[in-house]
Design a protein around this nucleic acid. Structure first.
Lengths: 331, 331
DNA sequence: TTGTATGCGTTATCAG
DNA sequence: CTGATAACGCATACAA
């Protein structure tokens, strides 16, 4: 391994000068710099990042905590994060919690040990953790919003988006509307369910509580929950699924009972993942600006890490209702 | 920040003893250890990993280079890797190349700088890089196999699997068989195409070269390439897609032309991703043991990093033809 | 079984 | 503009 001192010797300068050439080139004479650069090139010198980090206490790394990387929506947010991070010379370390509560702890250590300079949560199930981290390390929350928390957040307004989706079903004439919600342990699940209820209230629609069922955001849970709903005496005519994966699972279940979507049952999803146009019929859903959410979240984290003031700490991005073919007027 | 010396002072021992308590507890007297552990707890001491790494030159981190994290197949392999890594106290750093050639370079630096101890490639487009890394740093290749290379590999036999898939179509009576291959810049793409050709040769089937088209493993490319095929005078009756995402795209294209799968055109995929049962009809495909591939790859990497001898450096895992409803006998 | 002392490779301080 | 040198926090060879 070639070290800074090897370069220094070859260029006939001190290690300090070599270091300066690398970190603040303007403070060194041009001729000296030339010699140093040449030596670096000759020796194929690469600074040891570990040593640098020990000295500077900066890891140039951020950690993104994601609930389920195989969900295409999160993949896309991640892309947005990585794009901004890479542009600023930062590494992105990924932690997939596999929707597991346990695994969400222990990340504070990574920050304390300067293994990472900051963290982005794409979901929060363990809100205690957030409180620990709050005001202590740079952390931003993407995709969901926590009421009353001061953690910088970038997301859509999940409540109003869910309300919008439900309203759409109501306006199509549906009154027997089921909800396949996310886990109520997650803010995301709660918010989208809340929006669902708000729409019902606003239009004076009352729904049998048995139509409100909880999934866990996976395709399988959508399939299973829908099967439960299909076993009821009175079937729903419309279904609001809290994300697309569950909506796809629901459609699968409906079809396997030889019912038709949307003719017999309308289904609306949430996220607009790339597979939402795969199924027959194509899924009507709420589109989130996933890539932009990632961009903005990383921007925010940078500002936080640089101790810059953040004007607004809650960024709400625009969602959009994408009307395709999985919902139809109730006859 | 509380350091090792703070703990040492409080426990009335030297820093060396504290260090030993942490790394080789059996070498220290029980009573001493008790005092040290108590001090650690009292002060809420957490060793600085950076400093430790600088000393040991071990980062306890591995990097996985993945072509497209939003592909569910790779997500699953990754899970397998993480499972084994976590069990051994290793972090997994993820690099998504976004199928971009450029981005695949520069990882050698991460190894050289001891930012990671080893690396797993889930794909290799830039085989030069492999040659650089070869015999120099611990690297294993998962999912694909490079002819003549000595890099430890774990994968299925992509050639024979592709041959098996194609054979299946031939045995169903298809003769006009199209191939939507992966990029020929990737070994994976090459191998699966090779298997396709082998099956044709074996059964003396000759195919118009125009039926052999190249995609890039994405849903969109499957859709686009299939549209091209559908514009031909003589349509294929069977399609072998080199992965499920492209197969799904192809099915979409076929349906949008008001043709039926499998009645008009049979489609077979590769990978058995979780969305392969979403579409109508469900996809016949080749299943890879994704999780196990990940497990084995990480195992192999550990052995490599520990300089243990590796008995066999090429592990071939079993694939399996999953027959569902997207292929049917040619009438 | 424990302590002392040194070095890992870098950056930052201070003096020149 | 440059050089000498002291940290950064830890692990380990060697001595006790």
């Amino acid at each position: 391994m070639v070290r800074i001192i090897d370069v220094a010797k070859r260029a006939n300068v001190s290690t300090a000068t070599v270091s300066r050439v690398l970190s603040s080139p303007h403070t060194v004479r041009e001729e000296t710099m030339g010699r140093v650069l040449e030596a670096i090139k000759d020796l194929d010198y690469h600074p040891n990042i570990l040593a640098r980090q020990l000295r500077t206490l900066e890891s140039k790394t951020v950690i993104v905590v994601v609930p389920d990387i195989s969900n295409p929506f999160f993949s896309k947010v991640l892309r947005g994060i990585e794009y901004v991070a890479a542009a600023n010379g930062y590494q992105v370390l990924l932690k997939d919690t596999t929707n597991d509560l346990e695994l969400e702890s222990g990340y504070v250590d990574l920050l304390r040990q300067k293994k990472a300079d900051g963290m982005i949560f794409l979901t929060v199930m363990n809100s205690e953790l957030v409180n620990i981290v709050e005001n202590q390390y740079p952390v931003v929350l993407a995709c969901e919003y926590i009421e009353g928390s001061s953690i910088p957040t970038v997301s859509i307004d999940n409540i109003s988006a869910a309300r919008k989706a439900t309203e759409y079903l109501i306006q199509l004439g549906h009154r027997q509307i089921a909800s396949i919600s996310g886990p109520t342990t997650s803010v995301l699940g709660q918010d989208r369910l809340k929006g669902f209820y708000q729409a019902l209230a606003q239009y004076d629609v009352t729904v049998d509580p048995v139509l409100i069922q909880e999934g866990d955001f996976t395709y399988e849970s959508g399939f299973n929950v829908m099967n439960k709903l299909l076993a009821l005496n009175q079937l729903p005519t419309g279904v609001f699924a809290a994300n697309d994966e569950m909506a796809l699972g629901a459609i699968k279940a409906i079809k396997s009972k030889h019912l038709r979507v949307p003719d017999d049952i309308s289904v609306i999803g949430f996220d607009n993942i790339k597979f939402s146009t795969i199924c027959e019929p194509e899924l009507t859903t709420i589109a989130q600006p996933a890539f932009e959410i990632g961009n903005k979240a990383m921007d925010l984290l940078f500002k936080l890490m640089k101790n810059k003031k953040i004007i607004r700490s809650q960024y709400i991005l625009e969602d959009k209702l994408i009307i395709r073919n999985s919902c139809v007027k109730k006859v």
